[in-house]
Simulated scan of single mutants.
Amino acid sequence: MAKPTTESIVLPNFPVTIVRNLDNNFIHDDISLKELVQHTDKGLILYFYPKDSTPGCTTQATEFTEHLNAFDTLGYDIIGVSRDSVESHEKFITKYDLQISLISDSDEKLCQYFDVIKEKNMYGKTTIGLVRSAFVFNKDGELTHAQRNLRAKGYTERLLDTLTS
């Protein structure tokens, strides 16, 4: 599968596993993001993060949850993506009372599509890892904003400023 450039990114048509908590029951939906946007008639903020329950990732997920109503008012759903398992996502959602949905991309298909797996330097060691990134799509599924190498803390407020200006 060819990797799109940032300018050519469209919502993929292959199925992904979305984990949602509805009234304390976990729902696992296998649906394409393209179909999801068509069914909800809302825009989509798709953000990629390295690992459930780590400090930066927890900060980012809880900030998205805190600002969920503001994003909803602007007409956006929010979905986080990591390579963690469905079970890990369920624990993460429960532990931090997250109100956002998460995608389990354990096969890295979505991460590769969005080209967010990169060589990183951590504490002097070169590793391959997921680069914190966000992609904003309008209700027609068109990319309107993309950012890579995000700083987790305060990102949701910066994104809200971008979307309202």
Rank of each mutant, 00 (worst) to 15 (best):
Y123C: 09
E63T: 03
S101H: 07
S82N: 13
C111F: 00
K95D: 06
L110P: 00
I78N: 08
H89D: 02
E87V: 00
T126I: 13
I79K: 15
I79W: 13
A134M: 01
F114G: 05
A70P: 04
R83G: 10
Y113S: 15
F114T: 06
K95Q: 07
F71E: 05
S53F: 08
S53T: 08
Y76F: 15
N121D: 06
H89P: 02
S53A: 12
I78Q: 10
M122Y: 04
T65D: 01
S82K: 12
G124H: 04
I100S: 01
G80F: 14
E63G: 07
I117G: 08
R132S: 08
I128A: 01
D115C: 02
Y96E: 08
S53R: 09
Q60M: 02
I100R: 03
E108T: 09
S53Q: 09
H89L: 06
A134N: 02
E119D: 05
H89Q: 06
L68N: 07
T127G: 00
G129Q: 09
F135G: 06
Q60A: 00
N121E: 10
S101A: 13
P55C: 11
I117H: 03
D77S: 14
D115Y: 02
T58D: 13
T65R: 01
V131H: 03
G129A: 08
T59Y: 03
S106H: 14
C111S: 13
K120Y: 12
I103K: 10
G56S: 00
S88A: 11
D77E: 15
D77T: 14
F92Q: 10
L130T: 13
R132M: 07
